[in-house]
Simulated scan of single mutants.
Amino acid sequence: MQEKPNDHVQALNYCAHAIEDLRETESMFRSLAPKSAVALHRIIDMLQSSVKFILPNCCNLIDPAEMRQAHLDLVRLPFPCVAFEAPWDKEEDGPEHIGDFKQTPATKRIALCWEALPEFEILPGLNSEVLNAFSEGGVFILPIYWGPEQKKWTVTMGGSFIPYGGEIRDLAMDQQLPATRIANAAKIEAGQANQKGKEFRAEPFYVLPEFFEEAVSVYGDREKAYAQIILDCHDETMVLIQACSVINCANVTTAEVAAPAALNKKRREKGKQPFFSYKVLQLTEDRKSSGLSGAKGQHSSPRMHLRRGHLRRLENKTVWVRPAMINAESKSGVVLKDYAVSKS
């Protein structure tokens, strides 16, 4: 097996750097796009208050081919507002376009996720509009990303809402809403999906009004603008599902990676955004039984690491099998491990 560059990662601190960049963008938007500036200010507040999780490269927690109803059933946020951070280092670059839709490279990702509560409403009326359609509630997902083209943190013009109680079903193009049908047709044409695949309900929404209307003008079609949002949010939607699949298993808990007090003092003195504390995932059974968890012997692992795993449904609970954050309290740092099998 072969290790990837992001196997050895300290706290990512993406949110702190994103907040600094987005404050500059907000200032620029105040005269150019005042409605978007107000929304961006709210997004910054939510980033500040969110509970932050470190995830492995590309959130490689489960095999995409193994995605099934059990994973969707576990989509419940552990806190009302969560920021999932993950590096996004792929061996091959993604396509520049999917059909008519441009794809922007992004090597660092934040999936900002929140419940439809009054204190988390980016645009007036967004929560009530969604809850009128989905009274059982659900989770909003907004991608925030950094890439080599813009070299700064950017918010996409919109995100996706995943309603609770959704079902994974066979892809049925003739039964889809227009924006979803347009997005899926583009993915199939580009070889990013196939007609025998699976789907689940995900509703697009916009958060930057002026930029959404500009996209409508460019495409000449509101549904195409929503299709762009669906495509832009695909990876972060999968981040939410994978992360919740682990977090909500009976044998998974979290450990805290504290914010660096001395470094934050210096950052405050320089007027910079302080770094945040983070939560990381650990498998409780491994910590009790595995020789890797704090063992002193030759094969002990001094740093925390993650291993890909799968769900197992027992009689009265669902458990996660074999991924683990080992040695969460270690002073040697964090290892976010994802394995790739070498081709011979």
Rank of each mutant, 00 (worst) to 15 (best):
residue 1 M to H: 12
residue 3 E to R: 13
residue 4 K to Q: 14
residue 5 P to I: 13
residue 9 V to D: 00
residue 15 C to R: 04
residue 18 A to F: 05
residue 18 A to R: 05
residue 26 E to F: 03
residue 28 M to L: 13
residue 28 M to C: 08
residue 31 S to Q: 14
residue 34 P to T: 07
residue 34 P to H: 08
residue 35 K to M: 15
residue 39 A to M: 06
residue 42 R to I: 09
residue 43 I to F: 04
residue 43 I to H: 03
residue 47 L to V: 02
residue 48 Q to F: 08
residue 52 K to G: 00
residue 58 C to Y: 06
residue 58 C to K: 14
residue 67 M to A: 12
residue 69 Q to N: 08
residue 69 Q to R: 07
residue 70 A to F: 07
residue 73 D to G: 06
residue 74 L to Y: 02
residue 78 P to C: 06
residue 78 P to F: 06
residue 87 P to C: 05
residue 88 W to S: 12
residue 89 D to V: 09
residue 92 E to I: 12
residue 93 D to W: 07
residue 93 D to Y: 06
residue 94 G to V: 03
residue 103 Q to V: 11
residue 105 P to I: 04
residue 110 I to M: 01
residue 119 E to A: 11
residue 124 P to Q: 10
residue 125 G to T: 07
residue 131 L to V: 09
residue 133 A to N: 14
residue 136 E to D: 14
residue 136 E to I: 08
residue 139 V to R: 02
residue 143 P to D: 05
residue 143 P to V: 05
residue 144 I to S: 03
residue 145 Y to R: 14
residue 147 G to I: 02
residue 149 E to M: 11
residue 152 K to M: 12
residue 156 T to Q: 14
residue 156 T to G: 13
residue 165 G to S: 10
residue 169 R to F: 08
residue 169 R to L: 08
residue 169 R to V: 13
residue 170 D to I: 12
residue 173 M to K: 08
residue 174 D to L: 09
residue 174 D to G: 08
residue 174 D to Y: 10
residue 177 L to A: 15
residue 177 L to V: 13
residue 178 P to I: 10
residue 182 I to Q: 03
residue 186 A to L: 03
residue 186 A to E: 01
residue 188 I to R: 03
residue 189 E to F: 10
residue 191 G to W: 04
residue 192 Q to K: 13
residue 193 A to I: 05
residue 194 N to Y: 13
residue 195 Q to A: 15
residue 196 K to I: 09
residue 197 G to M: 09
residue 200 F to R: 06
residue 202 A to W: 06
residue 206 Y to C: 06
residue 210 E to F: 04
residue 212 F to A: 02
residue 215 A to S: 15
residue 216 V to D: 07
residue 216 V to Y: 05
residue 216 V to E: 11
residue 220 G to E: 08
residue 222 R to C: 08
residue 223 E to Q: 15
residue 224 K to F: 07
residue 232 D to E: 14
residue 233 C to Y: 05
residue 233 C to G: 11
residue 236 E to Q: 15
residue 237 T to V: 11
residue 240 L to D: 05
residue 240 L to E: 05
residue 241 I to E: 06
residue 241 I to G: 01
residue 244 C to V: 02
residue 246 V to G: 01
residue 247 I to C: 00
residue 251 N to F: 00
residue 254 T to V: 03
residue 257 V to R: 01
residue 259 A to V: 10
residue 260 P to T: 04
residue 260 P to H: 01
residue 260 P to Q: 04
residue 262 A to K: 12
residue 266 K to Q: 14
residue 268 R to D: 06
residue 268 R to W: 02
residue 272 K to S: 04
residue 272 K to H: 10
residue 274 P to K: 05
residue 276 F to G: 01
residue 283 L to D: 00
residue 284 T to G: 01
residue 287 R to D: 01
residue 288 K to M: 06
residue 289 S to N: 11
residue 291 G to D: 11
residue 291 G to A: 10
residue 299 H to R: 15
residue 300 S to W: 02
residue 301 S to N: 09
residue 302 P to I: 03
residue 304 M to R: 00
residue 305 H to W: 03
residue 306 L to R: 00
residue 309 G to A: 02
residue 313 R to D: 12
residue 313 R to L: 12
residue 314 L to R: 14
residue 314 L to T: 07
residue 316 N to F: 05
residue 318 T to K: 03
residue 320 W to T: 01
residue 322 R to H: 13
residue 323 P to F: 04
residue 327 N to T: 00
residue 338 D to E: 13
residue 339 Y to K: 10
residue 341 V to L: 14
residue 342 S to A: 13
residue 343 K to G: 14
